[in-house]
């Protein structure tokens, strides 16, 4: 089937109350936002045509993010490639709920690999609570020194065993955090880089696999990275896909 749709890649954030929406909720929020902005989104064929949106790695309900990504396919016949993306970003942010904003966007080559297959790691800021700094430091040191971090999970009704250790690319204790204005107990802040291939490690999974297991409070995804296999250089999904704009764009 002929497909010369234009692909727009968007980065957005998600903070505050809206973080309690699910990945599916966010998909619906975006569908409505794009219709309100009257963007000429391409639709799938068939009985129930759906807008062609493709989201990156799902963010767990309750986690915040500075770096969510979304690819949108636009109908080339109705898309003005010279449109001002900065004002579009502002318009879209205006239609998004409080706590979500577009932070960057660009046209990318339509053959750009999907976010799911190209992102290789995520950086997470993880606040853990009900624990003292020494215990956290020990748990982290133990994990980093371990040869493996085996977890068992259920997948399609079967018990699957995975080793998380190769996917824990880094794990650092940043330090204690003060009780915030919400009056919650103080805790300890961690920074982790977790691999996403062949599958993304979830923060909750990692914390449960530590010895002792830690309890998360606030979790923020700070970055998503694409690491080039050959050069080992990493770049974010927007600059990685940065392509000479389609004729005359930008």
């Amino acid at each position: 089937m002929k497909n010369d749709n234009v692909k727009l890649r968007i980065r957005f954030d998600k903070h505050g109350k809206i973080r309690f929406t699910s990945h599916r909720d966010v998909a619906r929020i975006w569908e409505r936002t794009l219709r309100r902005a009257s963007l000429p989104v391409a639709y799938s064929e068939g009985f129930s045509p759906r807008p062609k949106l493709s989201f990156g790695l799902a963010l767990s309900t309750g986690h915040e993010s500075d770096a969510e990504y979304l690819d949108i396919e636009l109908d080339p016949d109705r898309t003005d490639l010279a449109m001002d993306l900065e004002s579009l970003a502002t318009e879209l942010s205006g239609h998004l709920p409080v706590g979500m904003h577009v932070t960057d966007m660009a046209f990318v080559d339509r053959r750009t690999p999907s976010l799911q297959e190209s992102v290789t790691s995520c950086i997470w800021q993880i606040d853990v609570i009900d624990v003292d700094a020494d215990t956290v430091a020990c748990a982290v040191a133990r994990a980093l020194a371990a040869e493996d971090l085996v977890v068992t999970r259920e997948r399609k009704g079967k018990q699957v065993t995975d080793d998380l250790r190769p996917l824990v690319l880094s794990l650092d204790v940043i330090g204690p955090i003060e009780a915030d204005d919400t009056g919650t107990v103080a805790g300890v802040r961690l920074l982790a880089e977790l691999g996403t291939q062949p599958r993304a490690v979830r923060v909750a999974e990692l914390l449960a696999a530590l010895d002792p297991p830690l309890t998360e409070r606030r979790v923020v995804r700070l970055h998503q990275w694409i690491t080039n296999d050959d050069t080992a250089e990493r770049s974010d999904p927007l600059s990685a896909a940065a392509s000479p704009a389609p004729a005359g764009a930008m």
Partner: peptide, 19 residues
């Protein structure tokens, strides 16, 4: 402030956020 830390422990927390 009291509700927020409790929401991760209930089903469908978005029911309680308004927004």
């Amino acid at each position: 402030p009291q509700l927020e830390p409790l929401l991760p422990h209930v089903q469908k927390p978005a029911r309680y956020i308004g927004c």
